[in-house]
Each structure stands twice: as C-alpha cells, then as structure tokens.
Design a protein around this nucleic acid. Structure first.
Lengths: 232, 232
DNA sequence: GTTTTCCACATTGCATACAATTTTTAATAT
DNA sequence: ATATTAAAAATTGTATGCAATGTGGAAAAC
C-alpha cells in the first residue's frame, strides 16, 4: 500500500475532522495564512486542502474572498435528507443481498466506539455517528456509493451543526444497533424501516437557533494537528 | 452576477470538456507543465484544475507520479450504472411532481442541439448526450442531486470511452424525446420506464465488447416490457 | 542475451515572491 | 454624528524556484 501522505493530505484530514466534530462551526473563515501557520506549512498546501474540502461540500470558497466552513441554508435540509434517504436505501438494499459476518463485526465494533465516545462526552461521538453510515456504504464494496454517502452525510452534519440543538441525544446509537440486527437477519423490510425512521429522527433535530459567532481559527485547530483515527 | 472567472476555472472547464468529448482518452498522462504551457499559465493553475477534476472522478492523481485521465475498471461498470439508475429515478420522481413549461422548453432546446451536433458529426454530441441528464437533474432545483448526477454521468462516460465502441448510435436522442413527452404528461410510470430502458441501453454499449459472454436475451428484453409495477 | 546498477532527466511537492483584489481603517465632507 | 472617500492592511491569485521523488536508459555484471 502506498502510505505516501502528502502535507495537504494531513491538513485536509485534520480540517475535515475539526469541521465534522463541530469544532469549526459553519461560517468560520478559513484564511490560507492562518491554516498554513497552524500546521506549519505554506499557503500552497493549505489551499490544496481547502479546494478538496470545497468539492466535499464542507467548505465554500469565493473568488478573492477566501474560504469558510460551508453554511447550508435551512431550506436545503429537506432536500439533503431526502437525497440521503434515497442513497441509504440503496445501501441497505445492497447490504441485505449479501452480508458477511466480518461486516457485522465491523459494524458492532464501530458502535462500541460510538458508545465509548458518547460516555466520554467526546466531540468524536458526533463524527462517529456520521461515519457509521459511511461504514455501511463502504461495506457494499462500491467506491462510488461510498463517496456519495460520505458527501451527503457531511452535508447533513453541517446542517445539524448550524440548525440543530447542541448534539442533544446525538445519533441514536440504539437505532444503529437495531439496524445491525435487521441486517444480520437479512430482513430488508425491517432494515429499511429502521433506517428511514432513523434519518427522519436525525432530520427533526434540525430545528432551533443559529449561533453565528466569529471564532479564532488558530486556537481551535491546534487540537487537530494529527489525526488519531483514519478518515473515511 | 459575479463573472469572476479565475484561470484555473477555465482550465478546469476546458479539460473537462476535452475528457468528456473523448479527445483525451482514459489513461492519457496530464503533466502539469504541458497543461500550463498549452493554456499559457503556470503549473499552479494547472494543478488546481487537476485537483478539482480528481474529485470529479475524471482524473486520477498519484503522489509524485502525476495526473492522468481516469481509467475506470470494467467491473465498475455495473456498479456505476446501478447507482446512476438509482439517482436518475430520484430525478424523474421529483420532476414529475412539478414540471414547468419553461423546463420542457429547455429540454427540447437541448435535444435540438444534440441533433445538430450529431448531424455535424461533432464530438460535442457525446458530451451533450450526458449533459441532457445533468440538465434534467438541474431542473429539480436540487444542487446536491445535480452534483451527484453530474459526477455519476461523468464516470459513466469514462467507462463508455474506455470500453464502448466508438460512439455508435451514441445517446439515443429518440429516447430523450420520448422521455420529455412522458415528463410533460407528468406520467411518472412511463418516464421511469423510459429512463430505465435508456440507461440499460447505454450500459449495454459498454458490455458489447464481450462477444462470447452470456448474453441473456430474456433479461435484456425484459426491461422493455414497460411494467411500471416492477420499478421499485 | 539478460539482468542489475547507476546516473541524467523529467516531474511533482512545497515554499516564497509579487501582483491583483478585497477589507479595514482613517480622514474628510456633509 | 453620519456618510463618503481614500489610503493602508490583509488576503487571495498566480508565477517561479528549489528540493525531493520518480523514470528511463546506458553501462556494467552475470
């Protein structure tokens, strides 16, 4: 395996984690200088990472005006979650056709990590909740589908970060467990129903206030210099 | 309107067109120097464009080894087209819920351009055939869905460029027209059936090289039965 | 004749410099 | 005070240079 990690790779990964864990909130400006300085690299590498984050829908770049954590509009919520349901239905259908024991184990293992992070009140739990869905997509073996799910989950996370209440009962670990059970039993109908309910529940969390305050990027990013677990 | 087009924007657009019109074939190396030279800009701008094309799935970049037009594997074909059907079904369903006259006009106008390009034997016809589907997605008003469709259509185009015969009967303009009629009549069942058949027909162009393989006539013909109940 | 080694060349990763653009600040006029 | 304008500072867009990595081919060894 080519473990050649370029500098912009690690910046990309760190920024991504920081955004998905809501350390960097929607709207936060991301000047190339500050980012490069925090990570000890030049603007060139920072910019490269930002461009990639933009195509992920996590960052918005406006010409000559710089980058900022993306701020999805509230009216995108319905659209994004509808599309998410569409894609994740496809995931469930494919998984029910062939589900290995290893896959079940991987899913259960992931949920255990979610529980651990939640008990520790770690911001990791927010990200892990989303990555559970990405793991599901990965288990289909389809790189394309995984990419799409990854993007739509990111986008949904941003919407929650902006409009949801501060991760109250974040994620519904219980629903994740029930979904795994249904998949293990190859019960497609049940799995689809659980997923649908789960996603509606998540969507409903997008309700309340919009806290838009300017924050200091450098101080936050210090905690995300290296990434403890791999990105999906 | 902000018509601020940066240099890497135009390089991005040009390269994208060239790839989708099969002027640049899968596997073609894309050295930053050559690209910069061709467009009269520096490597910096060329690289920026390449990074974006990579996230589009049109270009593959390997660290220290440079970029090349992406070469999807043959076994991706089934996966890509399955996903494409999934997404475009969503498009059709959304369009049938509300279809304006302007939309119909835009679609018909696009098809007229397709016909013009096809008569002129222009390579534009290849790209326009794909962009018809992107236009459909755009008309749903969902930026997310449009982005996904755009990407999956690009990927499918690459597969055809690599494994299909040299755009024989490229695109099925007739099917595009019939689809528009069904949409105009808000006949969801018919529209879905036509789209499904259309996409299978496109996919079959990639399979056609495997001469001896098990060509199951029944399974192919089955798709042309117009059975709306089987659609989901 | 085939394989291996090594070196020149090509290409990328990254940093830095400078020009162009935007944002902020200060000064002036109303 | 408020609004307007202009200069200063900050930030991005782009070009270029250098070090690091990868590639291809000639020479040497087998």
């Amino acid at each position: 395996m080519s473990t050649t990690s370029t500098r912009s790779d690690s910046i990309y990964a760190s920024l991504r984690r920081a955004i998905l864990e809501q350390a960097l909130k929607p709207g936060t400006k991301l000047p190339e200088d500050s980012i490069g300085e925090t990570f000890g690299v030049s603007r060139t590498s920072a910019r490269n990472a930002l461009v990639r984050l933009e195509t992920d829908g996590l960052v918005e770049m406006r010409p000559n005006r710089g980058a900022a954590v993306a701020m999805p509009e509230f009216n995108e919520a319905e659209d994004v979650f509808a599309l998410r349901r569409c894609l994740e239905r496809e995931v469930i259908e494919r998984l029910c056709r062939r589900m290995s024991n290893d896959s079940i184990d991987a899913l259960r293992s992931h949920v255990r990590e979610e529980e651990r992070a939640l008990r520790a009140s770690s911001p990791r739990s927010i990200r892990l909740a989303g990555e559970f869905h990405i793991l599901l997509a990965e288990l289909t073996g389809s790189a394309e589908l995984t990419g799409f799910v990854s993007r739509i989950v990111s986008r949904a996370s941003l919407i929650l970060a902006r409009f949801g209440r501060p991760h109250s009962a974040e994620c519904g670990i219980d629903e994740h467990l029930r979904l795994i059970d249904a998949l293990a039993a190859q019960d497609a109908a049940a799995a689809l129903a659980i997923m649908d309910a789960h996603l509606h529940a998540v969507e409903d969390r997008a309700n309340s206030d919009d806290t838009g305050k300017d924050t200091d990027v450098a101080s936050i990013l210090g905690r995300y210099l290296n990434d403890p677990d791999q990105l999906r």
